[in-house]
């Protein structure tokens, strides 16, 4: 069956979705969806991700306290520990940790998704061009990618963000962190896309399309891209979790997201010094961070299993 799949014609968007039953021909996508619906890991991951995205979009659904309103903090209540009024305790400034954890989801999700999309589009696009045209285009793009690839990600991001400085980080919000991470992560996507395109472009249906007179653009977009993109989607989904933890790490070190924006990494940094006397201040944001990364990794794993069983 996997043989059939790789030589299957490109999916036709106009076609009515076919029920993917064994024995009947099915597209890669409907087949994957069929697999996913039956995968417990996917269900758990998807539910968690859905909740987190909801939290990022509408934090007020989860907390009646607006964490961005300084009037909700009362310094006299600082580091109170877990109480009925403050489920996760309060922080150094007497702000409610629960509402801050909820409001902190937005930055993490935003950084994760934006970085994944940007690296996917840039790396995927360049990988498609490099793989399809080959020769000097490939050499040029691959060498440039290798230069970036050689820089250790966290170290490189730390350097970029230190150079950009706190003032600019404050001004541009999440974008500075997103661009720093994207700048270092796109070559990975390029490599995967390029390899995938090279294997796809020698398939019979591509030769056939070319013989029928299709131009390069049409072949790339209609025939190669749909058949080569699966590994990129898998990588991007898995990377999402990596980007989220990278953001928390950079914010923890003081170069990422800047206060007063609420970020889990910043919350953990603020709580670090008093971990022994007020552990809840550190544990709750760390717990949410772990759950979020876990959710995206589970989702990515399930998508990989469905789209690219060979990688399992």
């Amino acid at each position: 069956m996997s043989n059939e799949m790789t030589v299957a014609p490109p999916p036709q968007p106009a076609e009515a979705p076919q029920p993917a039953k064994p024995g009947k021909p099915a597209s890669l996508w409907s087949d994957a969806w069929y697999d996913l619906r039956r995968n417990k890991v996917f269900i758990i991951g998807a539910v968690l991700v859905f909740l987190l995205v909801l939290m990022a979009l509408f934090p007020s659904l989860f907390s009646h306290v607006d964490a961005y309103n300084p009037a909700t903090c009362n310094l006299a209540n600082a580091r109170q520990g877990v109480t009925g009024a403050h489920w996760f305790g309060t922080d150094n400034q007497g702000c409610d940790t629960y509402s801050r954890v909820i409001y902190g989801a937005r930055v993490s999700i935003l950084v994760g998704i934006l970085t994944a999309v940007i690296t996917g589009v840039v790396g995927g696009g360049l990988g498609l061009v490099a793989g399809f045209y080959g020769r000097w285009v490939d050499i040029l793009l691959s060498r440039v990618a290798e230069i970036f690839f050689a820089i250790p990600a966290i170290l490189g991001a730390l350097l970029i963000l230190s150079v950009v400085g706190r003032d600019n980080s404050q001004k541009w919000g999440v974008w500075v962190v997103v661009m720093a991470l994207a700048l270092l992560a796109w070559p990975l996507v390029l490599r995967i896309m390029r390899a995938s395109v090279i294997s796809a472009k020698n398939q019979d249906y591509v030769v056939a399309a070319r013989a029928l007179g299709a131009g390069s653009g049409r072949i790339m977009m209609r025939h190669i891209l749909p058949n080569a993109i699966a590994p990129v989607i898998v990588t991007s989904t898995l990377n999402l979790g990596v980007f989220i933890s990278a953001e928390a790490g950079l914010s923890f070190l003081g170069v990422g997201i800047q206060a007063p924006t609420i970020s889990w990494g910043l919350m953990i940094a603020d709580a670090r010094a008093r971990f022994l006397s007020a552990p809840e201040m550190l544990l709750f944001p760390a717990l949410l961070l772990s759950i979020t990364v876990l959710a995206f990794v589970m989702l990515g794993d399930a998508v990989r299993d469905a789209l690219d069983p060979k990688l399992r």
């Binding site: 300084p70 009037a71 903090c73 310094l75 150094n92 400034q93 003081g254 206060a259 007063p260 603020d270």
Partner: peptide, 19 residues
């Protein structure tokens, strides 16, 4: 200066002014 342990009280003053 971040090297003097001032972050917390400066944040507290900031919250006082904001509120």
């Amino acid at each position: 200066n971040a090297d003097g342990g001032h972050k917390e009280w400066i944040e507290a003053v900031a919250n006082n002014l904001r509120t």
